[in-house]
Amino acid sequence: MTLVYALLGVVLAPFAGILVAGFDRILTAKFQSRTGPPLLQPLYDIAKLWAKEPMIAHRFQPLCVYIYLAAAMVSVALFFAQSDLLLIFFVQAVGAIFLVIGAFLVPSPFSQAGANRELIQILTYEPLIIIVLAGIYLTTGSFNISAIYAMDKPLLINLPLLFIVFGYALTIKLRKSPFDISASHHAHQELVRGVLTEYSGRMLALIELAHLYETILILGLCSLFWTTSIWGMVVLLALTYLIEIVVDNISARMSFRWMLKSVWTTGLALSAINLIWLYSGGRF
């Protein structure tokens, strides 16, 4: 049964991801008083890229891209199999690291700088996510997702500050402003898309696909904060994503030094407050 859920997750996640990303682009366009692309635009983009002539910049690039995609798929599968949260996160990190290594392979200043910045992004969000997961453990007594579903109260009630911390990580992982530092959605703005510069055609299609998986994973993690009712979950996800888009549209890109400093100080302070409260036995 677990296996069926996992497979179902892997099959359905890209479609959900396409809808989310398409919705994101339409909403962003609306904010800028534009009409925006059709809802299925991400699908068109990926299909088009897939059909392009294969072109690589280094012989090991495909290796890195396939591993990135596989890691994203496995982490989504583990998520739908309600497995260990920390394990899911570490598996996801494999992909992130291989994306960086792939960018390091090519001696292009843009992809090198992008790779370094991507590492700083990983450095910024990784501890925050580990701490959030530990917060979940302190509330449920287990790192397993199944334990969260066994709770009769939503996690958000006990982990409000950690949810904000998670929001930071979410913004960095989704590459939204002000944290779209390693690879902007718009290449002409920053570093020619930094970490993605040297991937093209089919490789880029696979990366976009993997990114859809990552989006679903990260939204899935977000949904864990309200597991007691479907509507609560939907509202929480919609609100969070809406806030993400608003933040993306109203903020400028900042430097990685600012990101590291501000996110670590704010994030660690917020998590410390929330965790101390949990350790001291506070529960609603």
């Binding site: 501890p127 580990i130 701490i131 453990y137 660690l268 350790y279």
Partner: peptide, 30 residues
């Protein structure tokens, strides 16, 4: 996870570890 200080330091250290290794592994194969 039951020990606040240890946990915070392990979480931060784990991320730092990834950075210095990945950075090195990356440039070798290029």
């Amino acid at each position: 996870a039951g020990n606040l200080f240890t946990l915070l330091m392990l979480a931060l250290g784990s991320a730092l570890t990834v950075v210095y290794w990945a950075r090195w592994a990356g440039i070798l194969m290029g």
